[in-house]
């Protein structure tokens, strides 16, 4: 079947052997630099300012770094996949209110099942049940909204913002009428906090995120094609509907994981994904997913480092990150409007 296409003035026989090497080079360079930066930031975070009970401090810091790495990976994968599924780079699962819904589910679970039962069974079983419910609720809705037909981004954003607001308000209402002792147990979950997460939950999160990583590694090339949109992906032999449903499943599970670990983060994903796209200069998921992950680790660990040890604050990292991410969101939205 493969005979030559020869005819037509063959415009200078081209750079066939030069091309493959040049491709990929920038991606690899970016990943190397980001990797080195990540290692440096983590090392500084772990090993500087070690006074007093070294073993205790190190253990606490390691727990924080572990939480941040797991959450960074989850959020990076979610955001980049979501961009590929929806064919635009403004939406993220958090902007669409996925995190708020998960918090609402946690609240409802606490009220109906009871905090005592939840604490008795341990955080892992609770997480598993909440994630399963989250999948059952969100997957059909997200498929309808995102894969159903051609809706304009503006409408989808609007629906997402309204839904997110609704979930938050209902959640807050329920928290208000809740028994105060229950509220105290749950309180940690309503605001993003990167320190003091339960080790068993971190381990579970790490396993789930590792499965997500394996899925992305196995499908990265098909994801590149999926991101070209339904018509082109179909003609190139990728079942867009099937792959994007699978990707959405991964997204929902990972959103649940990161929310269960540290609470809702609205704009962190957007921030790190766009920094990664800028740095990587490519559409390829083999580069963008790891790049976004590394940027997220740098942002979280580096941000914590600066806040905690340079500025001497504690606990307000999520506010700073959200502020920066929110600015990115506004800029992207405005730039779209200007075009």
């Amino acid at each position: 079947m493969r005979t030559e296409l020869a005819v037509v003035p063959t415009a200078r026989t081209s750079s066939a052997n030069r091309a493959p090497e040049r491709r990929g080079v920038r991606g690899r360079t970016t990943l190397t630099i980001l990797g080195a930066l990540t290692a440096a930031v983590v090392a500084v975070f772990l090993f500087t300012d070690l006074t007093g009970n070294t073993a205790f401090i190190l253990e606490r810091r390691l727990t924080t770094v572990a939480t941040m790495v797991v959450v960074a990976t989850a959020i990076a994968i979610c955001t980049v996949l979501f961009h590929a599924i929806t064919g635009n780079q403004i939406l993220t699962p958090s902007v669409m209110g996925f995190d708020s819904l998960f918090v609402l589910l946690q609240t409802v679970a606490a009220i109906t099942i009871g905090v005592r039962w939840m604490t008795a069974t341990g955080p892992v079983l609770g997480f598993a049940i909440e994630t399963a419910v989250m999948l059952v609720v969100t997957l059909p809705a997200a498929r309808w909204l995102l894969l159903g037909g051609r809706r304009s981004i503006e409408v989808v954003v609007l629906i997402g913002v309204v839904a997110g607001g609704l979930f938050r308000s209902v959640g807050m209402f329920l928290q208000r009428i809740m028994d105060p002792t229950q509220f105290i147990v749950l309180q940690d979950r309503f605001f993003a906090r990167f320190t003091g997460t339960e080790p068993a939950l971190i381990a579970t999160g790490a396993v789930v995120v590792a499965l997500g990583v394996v899925w992305v590694v196995r499908h990265h090339a098909a994801l590149d094609v999926m991101a070209l949109g339904v018509p082109v992906a179909t003609t190139l032999g990728v079942d867009h509907r099937r792959l994007s449903t699978a990707a959405l499943t991964v997204v929902i599970v990972l959103v649940s994981t990161s929310t269960a670990l540290v609470g809702p983060t609205t704009f962190l994903g957007l921030l790190v994904a766009h920094l990664a796209y800028r740095a990587a200069g490519t559409h390829r998921h083999a580069v963008t997913v790891p790049a976004a992950t590394l940027v997220a680790v740098i942002t979280l660990v580096g941000g914590q480092l600066v806040l905690e040890r340079v500025l001497g604050f504690s606990g307000s990292l999520s506010i700073v990150v959200e502020f920066a991410g929110g600015l990115v969101f506004l800029l992207l939205f405005l730039r779209r409007g200007a075009r």
Binding site: L5, V8, T10, A11, T13, S14, A16, A19, P20
Partner: peptide, 10 residues
């Protein structure tokens, strides 16, 4: 890659 370059040349 050679086929790609060829298609672009054509």
């Amino acid at each position: 890659h050679a086929l790609v370059e060829e298609a672009m040349a054509h």
